[in-house]
Write a protein that binds this DNA or RNA. Structure first.
Lengths: 137, 137
DNA sequence: ATTGTATTTAGCCAAATGGCAAAAGTCAAT
DNA sequence: ATTGACTTTTGCCATTTGGCTAAATACAAT
């Protein structure tokens, strides 16, 4: 019987499973990911099978090798801030590289293809707008 | 001088600042959030000023009182899985309530208003599509 | 089957987390 | 100014994390 089963019991260990699934489909070995992330492979292994709860620091470290920019995993950040800061900055509109949480929530409801179609449309609109700007308003 | 400044030095403590900002704009006191989340206020305080790195377990706990469903904060999950499982499920296209990370990345580059305009357009398109479906293909 | 190599898991323990209780600020009302 | 109620920070320390090393386990190739 495992030692730290307090949390393993009914929690179904979502995060660990997801990380492992992601790592395997990349694909990477524990050691490779460990090197890329600067974390020990044994610790990663234990995280994946739910025997450890990684700190935010560790999550940060593994985010990039898993396919994301520095703390994009903590777009959380954006996620954590429904109405507050991002919009109320001095330069009123720059997103600071974060995704508005409401936008995110709505989009997440849609099928993947729709999500991707949306940004396809966006890029078309932008290119059109660019063309218009060249001609003048 | 603070004691645990190893990480405070050049990291600019993104996560802590964001959490505090979010908490204050809700608004909640440390104690209130602590009660709601089932975490000690002192620990929360230290997290906010970057003296501690919260574990994933703690992040989960504070996510809901900050305004999100159970582990929505760990839409991370969705975030962590660029091409793998979400799409390759049997029901080919349902997003599972997660946001495609590429989509997220692209959108996050845009100003907040653009992000919101995008979902505005999406909802228009959907309502149009709905109307068309009623008439027949 | 056996050897060799790559990958994962377990043992150990220094270092960090996270809770509790007490101290230090804050601030309004008297 | 002082009291009082409320919020944040600090000191302390049991528990947990996370790295290092060694032991299992998996898996080819011979």
């Amino acid at each position: 019987m495992a030692k730290y089963n307090i949390y393993m019991s009914n929690v179904k260990n979502g995060l660990g499973e997801i990380i492992r699934q992601q790592r395997v489909t990349i694909p990477l070995t524990l050691q490779e990911l460990a090197n890329l992330a600067g974390v020990s492979p044994s610790h990663l292994g234990r995280i994946e099978r739910g025997e450890r709860f990684p700190s935010a620091r560790i999550l940060r470290k593994i985010a990039k090798p898993m396919g994301f920019e520095e703390d994009e995993l903590f777009t959380l950040a954006g996620y954590l801030s429904p109405q507050s800061n991002a919009v109320s900055e001095s330069r009123a509109s720059y997103s600071g590289g974060r995704l508005d949480p409401y936008v995110s929530k709505v989009l997440a409801q849609e099928p993947i293809e729709v999500q991707q179609a949306v940004i396809g449309i966006l890029s078309m609109l932008k290119s059109i707008a660019k063309g218009m700007a060249k001609e003048g308003p």
